[in-house]
């Protein structure tokens, strides 16, 4: 049995377990909010976790995928985690929460000489995804830093132009591109 066949039967379960694992990383007080009774995902963050889970499992399984598509599926979850007062490790570490799940669900079926290397490939793909998540995380933090700066600059945009005008009687044109 090859990897993808094994995954076909297990995808739903792995998705479910991982979503639970991610939700369990949130402090007690926010858990009731993230998983409410009727549908555990009746809220945007829950929805993002689930969206990411499906993309990630697809990628881990080794199916033919488009990198952009996978990125897109985890993009929003990483975005929200990048602003949730988590350390960088905590924010993207959720990717590694797959490992114990995979070892419990997939490894037993592949734990024989003929397919063990395939299992190792699965975990390597997880590493790739973690790097990808790290890239996204860093990009998001950079965007955040950027918009902070941009916001401050924009707040005083006209003021700055006016002040520059004030310092010299030279026409505006001579000022552009120098000294700012």
């Amino acid at each position: 049995m090859n990897t993808q066949q094994i995954f076909r039967d297990k995808t739903d379960k792995i998705v479910k377990l991982w979503v639970e694992a991610v939700i369990n990383c949130y402090p007690d007080r926010s858990r009731p909010a993230l998983s409410s009774n009727m549908d555990p995902f009746t809220n945007p963050v829950g929805g993002m976790i689930r969206e990411a889970a499906q993309g990630l499992v697809l990628a881990i399984s080794g199916a033919d995928i488009q990198i952009e598509q996978i990125k897109k599926s985890i993009e929003r979850l990483i975005k929200i985690r990048a602003v949730q007062a988590l350390s960088p490790g905590e924010a993207i570490g959720i990717i590694y929460l797959f490992k114990p799940i995979l070892r419990a669900e997939i490894l037993p079926q592949m734990n024989k000489p003929s397919s063990f290397s395939e299992y190792l490939d699965i975990e390597s793909r997880l590493d790739t995804l973690a790097m990808m998540a790290f890239d996204l995380y860093v990009r998001d933090r950079e965007v955040l830093a950027d918009i902070r700066i941009k916001e401050i600059r924009n707040q005083y945009a006209e003021l700055k132009r006016w002040a520059q005008n004030l310092n010299s009687n030279a026409p505006l044109g001579t000022f552009t591109g120098c000294g700012n």
Partner: peptide, 26 residues
């Protein structure tokens, strides 16, 4: 990794009357 992930300061299973806000930067 699991231990790291869950290492955030956790609130006791207390009613809301007992939990306190966390003044985290941001």
């Amino acid at each position: 990794p699991q231990m790291l992930m869950a290492s955030r300061p956790d609130f006791p299973k207390a009613a809301w009357l007992d939990t306190k806000p966390l003044f985290a930067p941001g």
